[in-house]
Design a protein around this nucleic acid. Structure first.
Ligand code: MN
Ligand code: MN
Ligand code: ZN
Ligand code: ZN
Lengths: 138, 138
DNA sequence: AACCTACTTTATAATGATTCTAAAGTAGTG
DNA sequence: CACTACTTTAGAATCATTATAAAGTAGGTT
């Protein structure tokens, strides 16, 4: 159970005022044991049910975007319908269960080290990530 | 230079009538030496400039979707803005140049074999693909 | 060739996610 | 308390994509 103060400090330290709305969103996102993968509409539903305050959709978008810019969230592209976000901002790999639209973190050890054998002159590598699509056995 | 007849056969063999529009789209997509990565708007521009016939945007969407269903095209998710399609339908890995929004195929040999060390009971693996994001050196 | 019918194309409207606008509200400072 | 920059919000706007439904066409049949 993270303390509200933790979130207030985190927000202040990155130049974001700790508003009611942002703190509610922090609780929804970071007061968890496991990392959390979500879409905007997932988050909106959670906030509606778990929180007393009404938070507008615009604020949810604004806040998620601010958190992404500050590297508190990472965006994951799985398909073109909607955007997934991830509270695990480290470089890591994923399963995506196409039967349930669920994203699951893989530990880096679960995927052997990836040895890239190709040079790309004039370019720098920003990330190397593996996406493993899975389906339920029928 | 692929022959129009090739496309007619390809279309017929998958239950698609070889219409003017579909043949034009085949030419734009498959009459190439290298595999081709594109968005719908890329393709629409190409068809407008290279082809005499006017093809409606609805038909472009319909045809790309039909080709994807028949495994003549593969969809690649890079970011949530727009969908990329790929004439290379095999399982393969990509560079994505964030400076130019360009997708580049990697040969499977360029990325070592990926050894997945995790079991997922009740699930089957559909694909394992690596996405390497790169940027131009500033 | 004329005919039939299922498949296609197309213009246009609808949808849905995301972003923008501009007005009202609030946090932090003095 | 007063001030101002930052924030929230409802609602409009945008943009990619999908749906609708009417007109056109391919490919078979008489
Ligand atoms: Mn799609
Ligand atoms: Mn986005
Ligand atoms: Zn993750
Ligand atoms: Zn490719």
């Amino acid at each position: 159970m993270e303390n509200k103060d933790t979130f207030v400090k985190k927000l202040r330290s990155s130049g974001l005022r700790p508003t009611r709305q942002r703190i509610e969103i922090c609780k929804a996102l970071y007061d968890r044991k496991k990392t959390f993968h979500f879409t905007i509409s997932d988050l909106a539903k959670i906030l509606k049910s778990k929180s007393n305050e009404k938070i507008s959709l615009a604020t949810i978008y604004n806040t998620v975007s601010a958190f992404k810019n500050r590297n508190y969230l990472k965006e994951i592209s799985i398909n073109s319908n909607k955007s997934y976000f991830d509270t695990n901002v480290s470089n890591h790999h994923h399963f995506f269960n196409e039967s349930t639209d669920e994203l699951i973190d893989l530990k880096n050890e679960d995927v052997g080290n990836i040895k890239l054998k190709k040079k790309i002159p004039g370019k720098k590598i920003k990330s190397v990530e593996v996406l493993i699509k899975i389906q339920n056995n029928n």
